[in-house]
Deep mutational scan, measured.
Amino acid sequence: QGDIVVALYPYDGIHPDDLSFKKGEKMKVLEEHGEWWKAKSLLTKKEGFIPSNYVAKLN
């Protein structure tokens, strides 16, 4: 089961498979690959890669 993270900063995706998000948006982490994680937005239901240093895990 994936962790839920919250965006600390907004992110505008650079690549087509990036997931753009707004500050405060919550996402479910699907896979962790070093600095880039695959996640699904709980708001938009879209999936893509996010920079892990832009988010914090919720406990």
Score class of each variant (00 low, 15 high):
Asn59Trp: 10
Trp36Gln: 07
Lys57Arg: 14
Lys57Asp: 06
Leu58Ile: 13
Ala39Arg: 00
Phe49His: 06
Gly34Asn: 06
Gln1Tyr: 13
Lys26His: 14
Lys45Thr: 10
Glu31Asp: 09
Gly24Trp: 07
Ala7Pro: 01
Ser52Val: 09
Ile14Glu: 09
Glu35Ala: 13
Ala56Ile: 15
Lys23Phe: 07
Leu8Glu: 03
Lys22Gln: 11
Leu58Asp: 08
Pro10Lys: 12
Glu31Ile: 09
Pro51Glu: 03
Glu31Gln: 10
Glu32Asn: 12
Lys26Ser: 07
Leu8Cys: 11
Pro51Gly: 02
Asn53Val: 09
Asp18Val: 09
Ala7Ile: 01
Ala7Lys: 00
Phe49Cys: 12
Val6Lys: 05
Lys23Ala: 11
Asn53Lys: 13
Asp3Thr: 15
Gly13Lys: 08
Ser52Met: 11
Asn59Ser: 14
Gln1Thr: 14
Leu58Gly: 06
Val29His: 01
Glu31Ala: 11
Pro51Phe: 04
Gly48Leu: 01
Val55Phe: 14
Ile4Pro: 02
Glu35Val: 13
Lys45Pro: 03
Lys38His: 09
Lys38Leu: 15
Val55Ala: 05
Glu32Thr: 13
Gly2Asn: 11
Ser52Leu: 06
Asp12Ser: 12
Lys45Ile: 06
Gln1Phe: 13
Lys23Leu: 08
Trp36His: 07
Val5His: 05
Val5Phe: 10
Glu25Met: 03
Lys46Asn: 09
Lys38Asp: 00
Ile4Cys: 07
Pro10Val: 07
Phe49Ser: 06
Leu58Lys: 05
Ile4Leu: 09
Lys46Asp: 07
Leu30Val: 07
Trp37Met: 15
Glu32Gln: 14
Ser20Thr: 10
Phe21Gln: 02
Glu35Ser: 13
Pro10Cys: 12
Ile4Met: 07
Pro16Ser: 09
Ser41Trp: 02
Tyr54Asn: 04
His15Ala: 10
Pro51Met: 05
Pro51Cys: 07
Lys28Thr: 10
Val5Tyr: 14
Ile50Trp: 01
Thr44Gly: 03
Leu43Gly: 06
Asp18Trp: 10
Asn53Arg: 14
Gly2Ile: 10
His15Phe: 11
Lys45Asp: 14
Pro10His: 13
Phe49Pro: 01
Glu47Ile: 14
His15Tyr: 12
